[in-house]
Amino acid sequence: MPQGPLVYRQRLLTRITHWLWAISLFFLMLTGLQIFNAFPSMHIGLESGFDYDNAILSITAREVEGEVQGITRILGAEFDTTGILGVSGGEVRAFPAALTIPSKTSLATGRVIHFFFAWVLVITLAVWLVASALNGHLRQLIPTVADLRALPQDLKDHARLRFHHGASYNVLQKLAYASVLFAALPLMITTGLSMSPGFNAAAPWLLDLFGGRQTARTIHFLTMLALLGFFAVHMAMILLAGPLNEMRSILTGWYRTDGDDHA
């Protein structure tokens, strides 16, 4: 555990936006799975193939000798996912009730909540971006040349669960946070907008960029999985690096550093 001085590492605005994103992403994901359930397959191209196959993922159910089986197909490979995907709680549904908001099937409710939190996310991101560009926080997220040189060593240290508690983010943190804020979230927003027929009229070029509406929908889903992966690693890092110190820093801003590192 670090024994050095406390440093003020996260500004109030950074902390508030962090938690607004956390809440928004929680609701966006679970209402997103509700929306997915209305048409539980993902396609590549301009449209969804019904007379031809352009699906890369589908979660369906079929009856085999009187038993209903949940079937998940990924790139042509078939998996029996009865009980979790396809069939759960005695119901035919792609994602189970435990993973959707609301728990019962309601596309309308899912969409109302999804778009509400999409606005919260977009507005929060815009406020954060402008404020962070002005107060210098943005620069703290961009890896420096020295950071990149330290990358191999930082990777080794992380692999050995040897964490440094510095006053600034380490290079892996910078890369992780920057890719969420500057790549994953903008990709979520633009692919999400590309699913709107109204927005397609405003920016048809965006649809062309993604390779069609169904590809945009698939990228939206895959980016959600990437964000979920980030969340898992984020939680693991907090637990491994000292959860009380990490929680204090994102709640109060104060972070206890290693005594020998004042960088």
Partner: peptide, 20 residues
Amino acid sequence: QRALIGDRLAPEFTEADIRQ
């Protein structure tokens, strides 16, 4: 949405895009 799309048209496609 109204402010963004005005009276713009929805994308149109070609005969070759009708696959089903």
